[in-house]
């Protein structure tokens, strides 16, 4: 006699799975909150009349291993994340943290004063403050009622 050892998934489980799949598919058409970064590191860009602030998460990179340069309206962040120095006799259980060299350029919405650019580093997050050129700051024009 044929004896069935394993329980086949019930039809409802199957329907539920299908529903989840459909939801996931529909979600992918909706606009995302975040634009995926083309390469490491992902950056956030903040803009005001005064200038631009760029932040990026670069955990595990020493401030001296990262370079920031600005040419007109092109910001370049490059550097290297060095692999962890471990002894000979180690056995990895899990290795998810990438390492290696990286370089990324981003076009800024306007030219900035390269001499006044400041970068700070805190808890693995780099914040770059790029003030706008004084002569290029927008001027408020008063509307006079007649």
């Amino acid at each position: 006699m044929y004896y069935r050892r394993y329980r086949a998934p019930s039809i409802w489980q199957e329907v539920e799975r299908l529903q989840r799949e459909m939801n996931r598919l529909l979600e992918s058409f909706q606009p995302r909150r975040v634009q995926p970064a083309p390469s490491f590191p992902a950056m956030n860009l903040w803009v005001s009349d005064e200038g631009i602030v760029v932040t990026a998460e670069v955990p595990g990179i020493k401030p001296e291993d990262i370079d920031v340069s600005v040419v007109n309206d092109l910001l370049t962040i490059s550097g290297e994340r060095l692999p962890e120095q471990v002894g000979e006799e180690v056995r990895y259980h899990r290795r998810e943290r990438g390492c290696g060299k990286f370089a990324r350029s981003i076009q800024l919405p306007f030219a900035v004063d390269a001499n006044k650019v400041e970068a700070s580093f805190e808890n693995g997050v780099i914040t770059i403050n790029l003030p706008r050129k004084e002569e290029e700051k927008p001027k408020k024009i008063k509307v006079v009622a007649k």
């Binding site: 955990p59 471990v86 990895y92 259980h93 998810e96 693995g124």
Partner: peptide
């Protein structure tokens, strides 16, 4: 996360920027 084992310890590294 990275996890590795040495002879006398388990070492865990975790990226939690910010």
């Amino acid at each position: 996360s990275d996890i590795y084992e040495t002879n006398d310890a388990l070492v865990l590294l975790m990226d939690i920027p910010g």
